[in-house]
């Protein structure tokens, strides 16, 4: 088995998180259903970037309350809530990709 472990690349596959979390206006995570194996710092970073998008939009006179972001294998939906936001993380399954 030691031989096989040496041959297998360690960074080949990544698990994509699924779930939702809320952040307050300061970017602090208030509640979360995201699995515990996802580092809290990473969740906070996502929340802060999304809040940054909403805040910068207000400065550019763009008004919206919901954003949907599509990646090749992932989808983020975020909705603004009293200065904070609720953020949904959903990996795109093969079935979902074939439908879109």
């Amino acid at each position: 088995m030691g031989f096989l472990t040496k041959l297998t690349p360690k960074s080949g596959l990544h698990r994509l998180p699924s779930g939702s979390f809320t952040v307050d206006p300061y970017g602090e995570v208030v509640s979360s259903t995201v699995p515990q194996w996802v580092p809290e710092a990473q969740i906070r970073e996502i929340g802060q970037q999304i809040l940054g998008v909403f805040k910068a939009a207000a400065a550019a006179h763009l008004q919206f309350s919901e954003i949907k972001v599509q990646y090749a294998a992932f989808k983020i939906t975020a909705r603004q809530m009293r200065g904070g936001a609720i953020i949904f993380l959903s990996p795109r399954t093969l079935q979902a990709i074939s439908l879109t």
Binding site: Q42, Q49, I50, Q63, I67, V69, A73
Partner: peptide
């Protein structure tokens, strides 16, 4: 700025290429 932020999120999650984003508001 938004593109940079969203691409950064994608990189941190290994979510693949950012293909697009859309925002929805009352106005």
């Amino acid at each position: 700025d938004t593109h940079r932020r969203l691409a950064k999120i994608g990189e941190s999650l290994h979510a693949g290429e950012l293909t697009g984003a859309a925002g929805f508001g009352l106005a």
